[in-house]
Design a protein around this nucleic acid. Structure first.
Length: 352
DNA sequence: TCTGGGGTCCTAGGACCC
DNA sequence: TCTGGGGTCCTAGGACCC
């Protein structure tokens, strides 16, 4: 029997800030875009539970949050700091098993099958991990435990905040079947809508659906939906080492069609991406420029070149792609630069 | 009311090669 | 009159996750 835990940090970015300034714990605190007196264009990344009580939540436009709580503490992202805290947490987790996986900056899987014999021991171990993260990294987290990644993840959701929830193999179907279909991992807004139109409201409805019908609507994704909704999820906990792409994006304060302004941003973004490429000693093959226009329509334009680690090539290619493709009659809202086709520069050198 | 930034994976058509 | 088949790479778009 497998036992997998998902450890998910509670309101991570703000919790990190609260370490530096404990007084924030009693105040609504938001990490995200600069609200600019309500004119800011970004969103809320995370907020603490004091802010949530006021109706604020992640992904909400920062201007709405500002309107709801103008006196809240609005903090900018300090990504390098959060990354350090994330690594600290991952280091603690790795003490408990060799089978670990970082899912995102604030989520980690750990397979503890070989460390425990029963549910009681699993809960005990989860408590130990949680309290070490609490005392050493000084951060709150929640833990979901089950025999699959899928159910561990969903159990964790219901454990939040600051909780531990174990869903045994026997109860796992009952547990997920009562949940709305949109809660299934991998089902987003679009798929949810299509599923509801087909008459499936809960994950249980989906589980009992005719697989042929699902395949007709979703092709191979239909099989996946059928499996997941029936608790079938053989995915292992595996640490994923290599990065596939690196990107930087920037949203203008106001939509613009000024070439100089846009190209200036492309240069800045290219330099930032280039810095990361050289810090990580990588080479890249493909440069992509992303343009989001004022109507929110997005276009990607990419070009593959000879593998290189040179920062200047990013800028040169990105500016070319922009000039060749930009739609002159529409203002640009957001610009992005991405590189992919990454390889260790060391290995790459052998090719020349 | 207005809608970020950083990622991953999948699909599909066309080019190109054998 | 009918115009291969398979594999891989490139580009673009879309859905999803945190």
């Amino acid at each position: 029997m497998r036992t997998i835990m998902l450890i998910d940090m509670d309101y991570f970015f703000v919790a990190c800030e609260e370490i530096k300034r404990p007084e924030l714990k009693d105040r609504p605190t938001i990490v995200g875009a600069d609200p600019k007196e309500g004119r800011g264009r970004g969103v809320v990344m995370t907020c603490n539970y004091v802010a949530r009580k006021l109706g604020i939540h992640s992904a909400m436009p920062i201007s709405s949050a500002y309107r709801m709580a103008p006196d809240a503490e609005f903090l900018p992202m300090d990504y390098p700091y959060y990354e350090r805290k994330s690594n600290e947490v991952f280091g603690i987790i790795k003490d408990f098993s060799e089978k670990t996986e970082q899912v995102s900056i604030d989520e980690f899987f750990i397979d503890v099958s070989s460390k425990i014999d029963n549910n009681k021991e699993a809960l005990l171990l989860a408590g130990k991990i949680k309290s070490r993260i609490n005392s050493e990294a000084r951060l709150p987290c929640s833990v979901g435990i089950s025999d699959t990644k899928l159910v561990a993840k969903m159990a964790c959701e219901s454990a939040k905040p600051d909780g531990i929830k174990l869903v045994g193999k026997e109860e796992s179907l009952n547990f997920i079947w009562q949940l709305p279909v949109g809660e299934l991992y991998g089902v987003g807004a679009k798929t949810k809508e299509r599923l509801e139109k087909m008459g499936y409201r809960t994950i249980g409805d989906l589980a009992k659906a005719n697989i042929m019908l699902l395949m007709k609507e979703f092709d191979s994704f239909g099989i996946e939906l059928h499996d997941l909704s029936n608790g079938i999820d053989p995915r292992e906990v595996v640490e994923n080492y290599e990065v596939k792409s690196i990107s930087k994006e920037y949203t203008f304060d106001r939509d613009t069609s000024k070439d100089e302004e846009i190209i200036k941003s492309i240069r800045k973004l290219s330099a930032d991406v280039g810095k990361e490429i050289s810090d990580k000693r990588l080479s890249y093959r493909t440069v992509t420029v992303k343009l989001r226009y004022m109507d929110f329509i997005e276009h990607l334009h990419s070009r593959s070149i000879r593998p290189t680690g040179k920062s200047e090539e990013i800028e040169k290619t990105a500016v070319e792609l922009y000039r060749e493709n930009v739609e002159k009659n529409k203002k640009v809202r957001k610009i992005g630069v991405r590189v992919s086709g990454l390889q260790d520069y060391k290995n790459q050198k052998l090719l020349f």
